[in-house]
Design a protein around this nucleic acid. Sequence first.
DNA 1: GCCCACCCTGTCCACCGGTCCAATAGGCTT
DNA 2: AAGCCTATTGGACCGGTGGACAGGGTGGGC
Lengths: 205, 205
Amino acid sequence: MTKHVFITSKGQLQARWKSAFPDAVVRTEPGGDRPDVLWWANVPLSSAELSSAIAALPGVPVVVLSPEPVQEDAMHAIALGARGYCHSHATPGMLQQVAVAVTHGGLWLGPELMSRVMGAASERLLGEHPSDVDPGLDLLTPRERAVALEVARGATNKEAARRLDITERTVKAHLGAAFEKLGVRDRLQLVLALKYVPVDVDHAA
Amino acid sequence: MTKHVFITSKGQLQARWKSAFPDAVVRTEPGGDRPDVLWWANVPLSSAELSSAIAALPGVPVVVLSPEPVQEDAMHAIALGARGYCHSHATPGMLQQVAVAVTHGGLWLGPELMSRVMGAASERLLGEHPSDVDPGLDLLTPRERAVALEVARGATNKEAARRLDITERTVKAHLGAAFEKLGVRDRLQLVLALKYVPVDVDHAA
DNA sequence: GCCCACCCTGTCCACCGGTCCAATAGGCTT
DNA sequence: AAGCCTATTGGACCGGTGGACAGGGTGGGC
């Protein structure tokens, strides 16, 4: 059975935690035994205390709970080795999700933070060389490509039609072909699929 | 029950995957239905295919499997939105661990990569942050931001509603508010406003 | 207390977007 | 000549989308 230990200076929200994990233990200091998940609700966030707590329990995932999530706090926590960062008012179900994720080796951050962290890490590690990502634009015919680029700039079908001097119907035809070739279902996903291409391409009428 | 779909160009290692997930399905293309986890064993790694596969299944965690893990490949996968990166020769037990972590909202990377990614993200986000924050996201309320991010991943209103556990109507409300605040007219331009800074609106007129 | 911002939901409706059914015409390969 | 790809357009269909009215609930500030 999974053992959960909550560290908190003030005794807040214990009811909610107990609801999520009936066997949870609430403490004011990370002493003694070895939990399966250590929930760090000790506000304000002290880097020193948190890092020593994490260091003292190698292999034990530590999740930081914050009453009002701040991305910068989250980044500090991650930098110190925390495996999760979550709203302390999260629902019991959410806490259970987090627990499952981190006890299985995962990092849990919440959608917004997660995408930000992943984006930042890629930027940092991939750096200047965006590498040769094949854009998929090569798969398209010239006309399909032109339409796709118009759409990727945020144009409606009607606007693209006017700019390319064709009917809206034709725009739809080319777009449909592009969807098919790129394996996407709508214009927004087409833009996402084209996102990773340097947009220096000029679109001449 | 969790449904696992493995995408692979050559049919390798299926026995091991079947061992981990007896109900797994192996395919050569990410077509049709909606799995709970999409395992991407399609080597060599094609950014376009992977990104469109990820975009086509918003909300479905995608885990990339590699016969010989390369950190750079892993970073590309992460940058494209994969929720995990793992050795394709991993034991069934390990794969199950990964599956559990990602299906519960986690990111699974393996200890070494994980610490590297987290370190890089911290450096990038804490170190020097020359206003690299999206200027638009700050204008939005937390809920509007969450909806906007779902939409920015290619989700429809309905899908965003399901993921955020609200009605489609509420998604529209938040989305409409986001449009208003960011001065855009539709979801596609919202995505452009969030991703790109240099938005030349010359053809909005 | 009242006001306000935020969050959530509802109905109605016009429009847009994507896909189905076609057709015509030019260029290219076989 | 036959066959295929590309480009172009038409009509019709229907679901997704966005705006325009609504409202109700909560929590914080004055």
